[in-house]
């Protein structure tokens, strides 16, 4: 413990890897590797140690101006404090949900919040239609309004088992358990190899920095 100085400059929102590792599926060395990744992402446009939405978009799309409904929603959910930026702790805890070993319940709950566009506590019909339209627009696909209505109707007839016109968390969970493919986006295989992709040199660099 006494080997490493505690006063080196860290970015705002930095949290100790041991704390984050205890709360997530990541090991301490994986959290350290994620810090290397975080530093890259958070300095790509504005070098302030925080991931801004433009930096997130730049990483995802190689284009800081490309907007996408779902990328926006994911950014907003990562931004737990809702202050317009993603801090390191938020980044690690949120990515933890995408870890292959994260509990399925966490993935199901995250996907629900992702689709609850208006934060009503339900996935509503209009929201679902809006998301389908966004995907079609993004993909340059054209479906008639009738077909879109049919798709949304069919989904609701399967998922809205209480028949009240909206999907609550309980219905969502039952629906996903019947159709596990619905949360395939919630697992990122990369996270198992994060120390290979982003080897951490935290210990050696910290000691060197502090001794200079």
């Amino acid at each position: 413990m006494g080997c490493y100085p505690s006063k080196q400059v860290k970015t705002p929102g930095y949290e100790e890897p041991t704390v984050l590792a205890a709360e997530t599926p990541f090991t301490v060395s994986e959290v350290e590797a994620l810090y290397e990744l975080f530093k890259k992402l958070s300095s790509s446009i504005i070098d302030d140690g925080l991931i801004h939405k433009e930096e997130f978009q730049l990483a995802l799309f190689k284009n800081r101006n490309k907007r996408n409904l779902f990328a926006d929603r994911i950014f907003d959910l990562f931004d737990v404090k809702r202050n317009g930026v993603i801090e390191f702790g938020e980044f690690v805890r949120s990515l933890g949900i995408f870890h292959p070993n994260a509990p399925v319940e966490d993935k199901i709950a995250f996907a629900f919040r992702l689709y609850d566009l208006r934060h009503t506590g339900f996935i509503e019909r209009e929201e679902l239609k809006e998301m389908v339209l966004a995907l079609l627009h993004e993909s340059d696909l054209i479906l008639s309004d009738d077909v879109i209505e049919q798709i949304v109707d069919k989904t609701f007839s399967d998922a809205d088992t209480k028949g009240d016109g909206k999907i609550d968390q309980e219905e969502w969970k039952a629906f996903v358990l019947k159709h596990p493919s619905l949360i395939k986006n919630m697992t990122l295989p990369y996270l198992k190899d994060i120390t290979i992709v982003f080897p951490s040199f935290v210990l050696s660099s910290e000691v060197e920095d502090s001794e200079i």
């Binding site: 790509s44 990483a59 679902l128 389908v132 995907l135 798709i151 949304v152 069919k154």
Partner: peptide, 24 residues
Amino acid sequence: CNLNAFDIISFSSGFDLSGLFEEK
């Protein structure tokens, strides 16, 4: 029509977070 709306949505590029892990 047996398409599930959520499966359709999952094709969005906004869900592909792999860009975060590509070498910068």
